[in-house]
């Protein structure tokens, strides 16, 4: 397989972008999960789907759009969706979580309309829904790398503010942390990562890469930094195994990446439970 990666450009693109997404998706996912907002990624990916479907439909109608990478419109839609979620969360202060299903439904609704208008998109859309090893172009890799730089830079410079806001928003506000600005930038970055990830992981599965490695990591970590490192490690492992499996089985990488992270999560839960039982038994034996 290494020989194939060295030979074929498309495989290099897929592996490089996959490995980059394996870092940034769980990195952002940690801040989403600890705030109990895991469904935000799902909502934004469905909005991105509407953007992709819109772009594909417009490419049939308008010449300009036929030359435009649909990922751009997908990302723009996700960014718009993220800003709308923020506005709606402000409007429904006592039911903040309502903003997520509202935007998710709107995303699916628009996507269904564009797909119907275009009378289906065939393999094009399937590639966006479930990811594709062969579909990642150099341009896509460039987009993924640029967005990853933004994400890493944002988290590097605003780590302490993001931690404070995630742990206790009210306290952060009282202590003078600029919550609104940071939260808006955060949401835009989440939307961009979702847009950038859909080529390789697929729209329907991108949210899993933001949440599943984190779900496993918080079982193992005792500190926030530890959770961050575990999330990235598990994300990378999932992408690597998933892409290798997708290559050999000739199937969509989105599915194999996500199933790998599900297996890792189950293994972590199993080992943690077993370890707890062993410690419990040892404790009982010591008491006897």
């Amino acid at each position: 397989m290494i020989e194939a990666i060295l030979t074929y450009d498309f495989l290099q693109n897929a592996f490089l972008s996959g490995m980059i997404i394996g870092i940034v998706a769980p990195l952002l996912g940690l801040f989403i999960v600890v705030r109990r907002l895991a469904l935000i990624a799902d909502a934004l990916s469905h909005v991105a789907l509407a953007g992709i479907a819109g772009s594909l439909y417009l490419s049939q109608q308008v010449l300009f759009f036929s030359a435009l990478n649909p990922v751009y419109l997908g990302m723009a839609a996700a960014v718009g969706g993220s800003l709308l979620i923020e506005r709606l969360r402000g409007a429904y202060r006592h039911f903040e979580e309502l903003a997520i299903p509202i935007i998710l439904s709107a995303g699916i609704g628009f996507a269904a309309i564009f797909i119907s208008l275009a009378k289906g998109f065939g393999t094009d859309l399937v590639g966006y829904l479930f990811g594709s090893v062969s579909a990642v172009s150099r341009q896509d890799l460039g987009i993924v790398a640029s967005i990853a730089l933004c994400v890493i830079g944002f988290i590097y410079f605003f780590y302490k503010e993001l931690f404070a806001l995630s742990f206790d928003r009210e306290y952060a506000k009282v202590s003078g942390v600029h919550g609104k600005v940071i939260q808006t930038i955060f949401m835009i970055i989440v939307a961009l990562v979702i847009g950038a990830s859909m080529r390789i992981v697929g729209i329907l599965l991108v949210s899993s890469l933001m949440t599943l490695p984190v779900a496993a990591a918080i079982q193992l970590a005792k500190s926030f930094k530890g959770a961050m490192l575990y999330s990235i490690g598990i994300g990378e492992l999932s992408v690597l195994i998933g892409l290798i499996a997708a290559y050999y089985l000739d199937i969509a990488p989105g599915g194999t990446i996500v199933i790998t992270s599900v297996i890792i999560l189950l293994l972590v839960l199993f080992f943690k439970k077993t370890l707890r039982k062993m410690v419990g038994t040892k404790g009982e034996a010591d008491l006897i």
């Binding site: 600890v34 302490k160 404070a164 742990f167 202590s175 970590a221 005792k222 500190s223 926030f224």
Partner: peptide
Amino acid sequence: PATVLEVVRSGLT
């Protein structure tokens, strides 16, 4: 997932 030290330190943000 945060240690006591991480929580207290966040007061210095």
